[in-house]
Amino acid sequence: MEKQGSRALLAAVIGMGVLLFIGSLVLVGVLVHRMMHPRPAVQSDAQVAALPARPMEGGIQAPLLLDEAPGTHVASVTAQSDGLLAIGLSGGEVADRIVIWDPAGQRIVARLVIGHP
């Protein structure tokens, strides 16, 4: 009885070792494949609406002006990891909306209207 238990245990240990070895080979193979075949950067097909350059006033750049309805207020501002700001706007007798702003490029990247007023 003792001999059969130790054989089963030895077989289980050898089997797990083989599985670990195969798993390690697969992991290394995936890493090598990804290094040899990198994915291209995701490119957006959306048009970027650039605002016209604003003149410098005494060495200070003029403020960015948004064409929003009177009574509009900022509901939220969220910074994205790529440096863009998602600004939630509401009020002004217009449906709630989100404006994506690129502070570095001084431009509005996208506008999203949410629902109806």
Rank of each mutant, 00 (worst) to 15 (best):
L65Y: 14
A46H: 05
H33A: 14
L10S: 15
V18Q: 10
V32Q: 11
G58W: 04
I87E: 00
V99A: 01
V42C: 13
M56I: 08
G91P: 00
A62C: 10
A53L: 10
A41S: 05
S44K: 07
R7W: 04
P117H: 13
M35I: 14
L10I: 08
V30K: 13
E57Q: 13
Q106I: 15
R111K: 07
G88N: 04
I114D: 05
M16N: 09
L27N: 10
A50H: 12
M35K: 12
A95I: 11
V42R: 14
S44C: 02
Q61H: 08
V42I: 14
D45M: 08
W101V: 13
P52E: 03
L25W: 15
R7E: 00
R34K: 12
A86I: 04
E93A: 09
I98H: 07
I14F: 09
S44R: 09
D82C: 12
Q80C: 15
F21G: 15
I108K: 00
Q80D: 10
T72I: 02
V18F: 05
V13C: 06
G58T: 04
S6K: 08
G92W: 00
R39F: 14
V13G: 10
A53D: 03
G91Y: 00
G88E: 02
T72M: 04
L9Y: 09
V26S: 03
V18C: 14
L25H: 09
A86R: 02
A62S: 07
S90L: 12
Q80N: 09
V99Q: 04
P103D: 01
M35V: 10
E57P: 03
V28S: 02
M56H: 12
V94L: 14
L27V: 13
L31C: 11
K3N: 10
D82V: 03
G17P: 02
R54F: 09
L65D: 05
V32N: 14
H33N: 12
G88H: 02
R7H: 09
V99W: 00
I114A: 12
V28G: 06
K3G: 14
P117F: 15
Q4N: 07
P38V: 05
G29R: 12
A12G: 09
R107G: 03
L64F: 04
V77C: 10
E57M: 07
V77K: 06
D45Y: 06
R7Y: 06
P38I: 03
